[in-house]
Design a protein around this nucleic acid. Sequence first.
DNA 1: ATAGTAGCCTGGCGGC
DNA 2: TGCCGCCAGGCTACTA
Length: 276
Amino acid sequence: MPELPEVELTRRKLLPLISGERITAFHSAWPRNIIGASRIAMARELPGRAIRSVERRGKVLLVDLSGAPARQFAVHLCMSGRLAVEPAGSVRSPWARAWWTLGNGTELRFIDPRKFGRIWYGDPARLLAHAYLSSLGPDARTIGREAFIRRVAGRRAGIKALLLRQDTIAGIGNILADESLWRARIHPRAIAASLSAKTLGRLHRALLATIAASLRAGGSSLRDWAGPDGARGGFREHHRVYGRAGSHCPRCRCVLKRMIVAGRGTTACSRCQRNR
DNA sequence: ATAGTAGCCTGGCGGC
DNA sequence: TGCCGCCAGGCTACTA
Ligand SMILES: [Zn+2]
Protein backbone atom coordinates (compact mmCIF):
# COMPACT_ATOMS: atom_id res chain seq x y z
CA MET A 1 0.00 0.00 0.00
CA PRO A 2 1.75 3.13 -1.15
CA GLU A 3 1.98 5.74 1.58
CA LEU A 4 4.63 8.42 2.05
CA PRO A 5 7.65 6.05 2.21
CA GLU A 6 6.67 4.07 -0.87
CA VAL A 7 5.96 7.23 -2.87
CA GLU A 8 9.24 8.79 -1.74
CA LEU A 9 11.16 5.64 -2.72
CA THR A 10 9.38 5.65 -6.07
CA ARG A 11 10.48 9.26 -6.56
CA ARG A 12 14.11 8.56 -5.66
CA LYS A 13 14.39 5.59 -7.98
CA LEU A 14 12.46 7.31 -10.74
CA LEU A 15 14.66 10.40 -10.85
CA PRO A 16 17.78 8.91 -12.48
CA LEU A 17 15.61 6.84 -14.84
CA ILE A 18 13.39 9.55 -16.31
CA SER A 19 14.62 13.05 -15.46
CA GLY A 20 15.71 14.90 -18.57
CA GLU A 21 14.09 12.31 -20.84
CA ARG A 22 11.79 13.48 -23.60
CA ILE A 23 8.27 12.08 -23.89
CA THR A 24 7.52 10.73 -27.36
CA ALA A 25 3.99 9.41 -26.75
CA PHE A 26 1.31 9.12 -24.10
CA HIS A 27 -1.53 6.62 -23.84
CA SER A 28 -4.30 6.08 -21.33
CA ALA A 29 -6.25 2.86 -21.06
CA TRP A 30 -8.43 4.18 -18.23
CA PRO A 31 -9.28 7.83 -18.88
CA ARG A 32 -11.68 7.96 -15.93
CA ASN A 33 -8.71 8.41 -13.57
CA ILE A 34 -7.47 11.53 -15.37
CA ILE A 35 -8.44 14.80 -13.70
CA GLY A 36 -8.19 18.25 -15.25
CA ALA A 37 -7.80 17.26 -18.88
CA SER A 38 -8.84 14.66 -21.44
CA ARG A 39 -6.54 11.86 -22.51
CA ILE A 40 -6.76 13.32 -26.00
CA ALA A 41 -5.33 16.62 -24.78
CA MET A 42 -2.60 14.78 -22.90
CA ALA A 43 -1.68 12.67 -25.93
CA ARG A 44 -1.55 15.84 -28.04
CA GLU A 45 0.39 18.04 -25.62
CA LEU A 46 2.89 15.68 -24.01
CA PRO A 47 5.06 14.52 -26.95
CA GLY A 48 8.16 16.68 -27.27
CA ARG A 49 8.22 17.76 -23.64
CA ALA A 50 11.05 16.66 -21.34
CA ILE A 51 10.75 15.64 -17.71
CA ARG A 52 12.31 18.41 -15.65
CA SER A 53 11.72 17.27 -12.09
CA VAL A 54 9.84 14.78 -9.93
CA GLU A 55 8.68 16.06 -6.58
CA ARG A 56 6.53 14.58 -3.86
CA ARG A 57 3.75 16.13 -1.82
CA GLY A 58 2.36 13.70 0.71
CA LYS A 59 1.40 10.64 -1.31
CA VAL A 60 1.39 12.47 -4.65
CA LEU A 61 4.18 12.63 -7.21
CA LEU A 62 4.40 15.88 -9.14
CA VAL A 63 6.18 15.87 -12.50
CA ASP A 64 7.24 19.16 -14.07
CA LEU A 65 7.60 19.27 -17.85
CA SER A 66 9.55 21.47 -20.25
CA GLY A 67 7.88 23.46 -23.01
CA ALA A 68 5.21 26.10 -23.36
CA PRO A 69 2.59 26.55 -22.19
CA ALA A 70 3.73 25.24 -18.80
CA ARG A 71 2.45 21.78 -17.98
CA GLN A 72 2.72 19.35 -15.08
CA PHE A 73 1.17 16.06 -14.20
CA ALA A 74 0.64 14.47 -10.81
CA VAL A 75 0.07 10.83 -9.87
CA HIS A 76 -1.62 9.35 -6.80
CA LEU A 77 -0.90 5.61 -6.52
CA CYS A 78 -3.76 5.13 -4.05
CA MET A 79 -3.71 1.50 -2.84
CA SER A 80 -2.70 -0.74 -5.65
CA GLY A 81 -0.75 1.55 -7.93
CA ARG A 82 2.90 1.59 -8.88
CA LEU A 83 5.06 3.32 -11.45
CA ALA A 84 7.40 1.13 -13.46
CA VAL A 85 10.10 1.99 -15.98
CA GLU A 86 10.39 -0.80 -18.52
CA PRO A 87 11.72 -1.26 -22.06
CA ALA A 88 9.27 0.38 -24.45
CA GLY A 89 8.89 -2.77 -26.52
CA SER A 90 8.23 -5.12 -23.60
CA VAL A 91 4.83 -6.62 -22.89
CA ARG A 92 2.74 -4.29 -20.74
CA SER A 93 1.04 -5.56 -17.61
CA PRO A 94 -2.68 -6.12 -18.20
CA TRP A 95 -3.17 -3.60 -15.38
CA ALA A 96 -1.21 -0.79 -17.07
CA ARG A 97 -3.65 2.15 -17.02
CA ALA A 98 -1.39 4.81 -18.58
CA TRP A 99 2.08 4.97 -20.12
CA TRP A 100 4.55 7.60 -21.20
CA THR A 101 6.97 6.44 -23.92
CA LEU A 102 10.38 8.06 -23.48
CA GLY A 103 13.09 9.00 -25.95
CA ASN A 104 15.64 6.63 -24.42
CA GLY A 105 13.72 3.51 -25.39
CA THR A 106 11.98 3.03 -22.05
CA GLU A 107 8.41 3.56 -20.95
CA LEU A 108 7.04 4.95 -17.70
CA ARG A 109 4.03 2.79 -16.87
CA PHE A 110 1.28 3.41 -14.33
CA ILE A 111 0.16 -0.04 -13.22
CA ASP A 112 -2.95 -0.03 -11.04
CA PRO A 113 -5.08 -3.19 -10.72
CA ARG A 114 -7.80 -1.56 -8.58
CA LYS A 115 -8.11 1.53 -10.80
CA PHE A 116 -8.27 3.77 -7.72
CA GLY A 117 -5.19 5.80 -8.65
CA ARG A 118 -5.46 9.26 -10.14
CA ILE A 119 -3.59 11.40 -12.63
CA TRP A 120 -3.92 15.17 -12.65
CA TYR A 121 -2.72 17.11 -15.70
CA GLY A 122 -2.62 20.72 -16.75
CA ASP A 123 -1.28 24.18 -16.05
CA PRO A 124 0.81 24.07 -12.82
CA ALA A 125 -1.21 26.71 -10.98
CA ARG A 126 -4.52 25.12 -11.92
CA LEU A 127 -3.19 21.69 -11.06
CA LEU A 128 -2.38 22.74 -7.52
CA ALA A 129 -5.80 24.36 -7.22
CA HIS A 130 -7.58 21.00 -7.44
CA ALA A 131 -9.32 20.21 -4.15
CA TYR A 132 -7.05 17.37 -3.03
CA LEU A 133 -3.73 18.99 -3.95
CA SER A 134 -4.59 22.45 -2.63
CA SER A 135 -5.67 21.16 0.76
CA LEU A 136 -2.60 19.04 1.55
CA GLY A 137 -1.11 19.79 4.96
CA PRO A 138 2.61 19.90 5.79
CA ASP A 139 4.56 16.81 4.75
CA ALA A 140 4.80 14.10 7.41
CA ARG A 141 8.49 13.38 6.73
CA THR A 142 9.68 16.89 7.46
CA ILE A 143 7.10 18.41 9.78
CA GLY A 144 8.62 19.80 12.97
CA ARG A 145 7.51 18.97 16.48
CA GLU A 146 5.84 22.31 17.16
CA ALA A 147 4.02 22.40 13.82
CA PHE A 148 2.82 18.84 14.36
CA ILE A 149 1.43 19.67 17.79
CA ARG A 150 -0.22 22.82 16.44
CA ARG A 151 -2.02 20.84 13.71
CA VAL A 152 -3.70 18.38 16.07
CA ALA A 153 -3.75 19.86 19.59
CA GLY A 154 -7.15 20.88 20.88
CA ARG A 155 -9.15 19.20 18.14
CA ARG A 156 -12.07 17.03 19.16
CA ALA A 157 -11.64 14.35 16.50
CA GLY A 158 -10.11 10.96 17.14
CA ILE A 159 -6.34 11.01 16.71
CA LYS A 160 -6.23 8.30 14.01
CA ALA A 161 -8.95 10.04 11.99
CA LEU A 162 -6.88 13.23 12.14
CA LEU A 163 -3.65 11.48 11.13
CA LEU A 164 -5.33 9.92 8.09
CA ARG A 165 -6.70 13.24 6.88
CA GLN A 166 -4.28 14.58 4.28
CA ASP A 167 -5.25 18.15 5.10
CA THR A 168 -3.97 17.70 8.65
CA ILE A 169 -0.60 16.24 7.69
CA ALA A 170 0.19 14.87 4.24
CA GLY A 171 1.47 11.36 3.58
CA ILE A 172 0.09 9.20 6.39
CA GLY A 173 -1.85 6.05 5.51
CA ASN A 174 -3.21 3.14 7.50
CA ILE A 175 0.18 1.48 8.06
CA LEU A 176 2.02 4.60 9.26
CA ALA A 177 -0.93 5.57 11.46
CA ASP A 178 -1.22 2.20 13.23
CA GLU A 179 2.54 1.73 13.59
CA SER A 180 3.12 5.27 14.90
CA LEU A 181 0.23 5.14 17.38
CA TRP A 182 1.54 1.84 18.71
CA ARG A 183 5.07 3.22 19.09
CA ALA A 184 3.71 6.27 20.94
CA ARG A 185 1.35 4.12 23.05
CA ILE A 186 -1.74 6.08 22.06
CA HIS A 187 -5.19 4.58 21.48
CA PRO A 188 -6.37 5.18 17.89
CA ARG A 189 -9.71 6.53 19.14
CA ALA A 190 -8.18 8.93 21.68
CA ILE A 191 -9.60 12.44 21.28
CA ALA A 192 -6.74 14.71 20.15
CA ALA A 193 -7.75 17.43 22.61
CA SER A 194 -7.28 14.98 25.47
CA LEU A 195 -3.62 14.38 24.62
CA SER A 196 -0.93 16.48 26.29
CA ALA A 197 1.76 18.30 24.33
CA LYS A 198 4.23 15.78 25.71
CA THR A 199 2.16 12.86 24.39
CA LEU A 200 1.75 14.54 20.99
CA GLY A 201 5.49 15.14 20.94
CA ARG A 202 5.94 11.41 21.48
CA LEU A 203 3.59 10.74 18.55
CA HIS A 204 5.55 13.13 16.33
CA ARG A 205 8.76 11.34 17.22
CA ALA A 206 7.14 7.96 16.59
CA LEU A 207 5.83 9.07 13.21
CA LEU A 208 9.23 10.29 12.01
CA ALA A 209 10.89 7.13 13.32
CA THR A 210 8.36 4.92 11.52
CA ILE A 211 8.83 6.79 8.25
CA ALA A 212 12.62 6.58 8.55
CA ALA A 213 12.50 2.85 9.34
CA SER A 214 10.20 2.18 6.40
CA LEU A 215 12.45 4.12 4.02
CA ARG A 216 15.45 2.18 5.28
CA ALA A 217 13.66 -1.14 4.70
CA GLY A 218 12.55 -0.18 1.21
CA GLY A 219 8.88 0.47 2.04
CA SER A 220 5.94 -1.87 2.62
CA SER A 221 5.02 -4.26 -0.18
CA LEU A 222 1.77 -6.02 0.66
CA ARG A 223 0.42 -7.18 -2.68
CA ASP A 224 1.00 -4.78 -5.47
CA TRP A 225 3.54 -2.14 -4.61
CA ALA A 226 7.08 -2.33 -5.94
CA GLY A 227 9.62 0.28 -6.99
CA PRO A 228 10.08 1.44 -10.61
CA ASP A 229 12.68 -1.32 -11.01
CA GLY A 230 10.33 -4.00 -9.65
CA ALA A 231 12.11 -4.23 -6.28
CA ARG A 232 9.75 -4.96 -3.38
CA GLY A 233 10.06 -3.43 0.05
CA GLY A 234 10.87 -5.26 3.27
CA PHE A 235 9.18 -3.06 5.86
CA ARG A 236 6.30 -5.50 6.17
CA GLU A 237 8.62 -7.74 8.17
CA HIS A 238 9.11 -4.87 10.61
CA HIS A 239 5.41 -4.11 11.19
CA ARG A 240 4.66 -4.21 14.90
CA VAL A 241 0.86 -4.13 14.65
CA TYR A 242 -0.37 -3.58 11.09
CA GLY A 243 -1.70 -6.87 9.71
CA ARG A 244 -0.82 -8.66 12.97
CA ALA A 245 -4.18 -8.82 14.78
CA GLY A 246 -4.35 -12.02 16.84
CA SER A 247 -0.57 -12.10 17.27
CA HIS A 248 1.30 -10.93 20.34
CA CYS A 249 2.21 -7.31 21.01
CA PRO A 250 6.02 -7.15 20.67
CA ARG A 251 6.16 -4.91 23.75
CA CYS A 252 3.82 -6.51 26.30
CA ARG A 253 2.91 -9.89 24.72
CA CYS A 254 -0.84 -9.08 24.90
CA VAL A 255 -2.94 -10.26 21.94
CA LEU A 256 -3.30 -7.47 19.37
CA LYS A 257 -6.91 -6.57 18.59
CA ARG A 258 -8.56 -5.57 15.37
CA MET A 259 -11.20 -2.85 15.28
CA ILE A 260 -12.70 -0.27 12.94
CA VAL A 261 -11.55 3.29 13.53
CA ALA A 262 -12.40 6.16 11.18
CA GLY A 263 -13.88 3.54 8.87
CA ARG A 264 -10.54 1.71 8.47
CA GLY A 265 -9.33 -1.62 9.68
CA THR A 266 -7.15 -0.89 12.73
CA THR A 267 -4.87 -3.01 14.88
CA ALA A 268 -3.80 -1.93 18.35
CA CYS A 269 -2.71 -3.30 21.73
CA SER A 270 -5.36 -2.84 24.39
CA ARG A 271 -2.77 -2.87 27.16
CA CYS A 272 -0.11 -0.53 25.72
CA GLN A 273 -2.58 1.78 23.99
CA ARG A 274 -5.10 2.78 26.65
CA ASN A 275 -7.92 5.19 25.87
CA ARG A 276 -8.16 7.49 28.85
C1' DA B 1 -16.02 20.79 13.05
C1' DT B 2 -16.76 15.90 13.12
C1' DA B 3 -18.78 11.21 12.22
C1' DG B 4 -20.84 8.01 9.41
C1' DT B 5 -21.83 5.78 4.96
C1' DA B 6 -22.17 4.65 -0.07
C1' DG B 7 -19.65 4.25 -4.12
C1' DC B 8 -15.64 3.52 -6.89
C1' DC B 9 -12.88 -1.34 -8.44
C1' DT B 10 -11.15 -6.04 -8.62
C1' DG B 11 -7.90 -9.78 -6.81
C1' DG B 12 -8.03 -12.81 -3.32
C1' DC B 13 -10.19 -15.16 0.13
C1' DG B 14 -13.59 -18.12 2.72
C1' DG B 15 -17.45 -20.94 2.25
C1' DC B 16 -19.73 -24.50 0.11
C1' DT C 1 -12.23 -28.86 -8.00
C1' DG C 2 -14.84 -24.72 -9.16
C1' DC C 3 -18.06 -21.27 -8.41
C1' DC C 4 -20.04 -17.42 -5.69
C1' DG C 5 -20.25 -13.61 -2.70
C1' DC C 6 -17.81 -10.64 0.14
C1' DC C 7 -14.12 -7.53 1.57
C1' DA C 8 -10.10 -4.06 1.72
C1' DG C 9 -8.44 0.30 0.90
C1' DG C 10 -7.94 6.14 -0.06
C1' DC C 11 -10.70 9.33 -1.42
C1' DT C 12 -15.04 11.98 -2.68
C1' DA C 13 -19.66 13.21 -1.99
C1' DC C 14 -23.20 13.19 0.77
C1' DT C 15 -26.11 13.36 5.15
C1' DA C 16 -26.58 14.11 10.11
ZN1 LIG D 1 1.22 -4.16 24.15
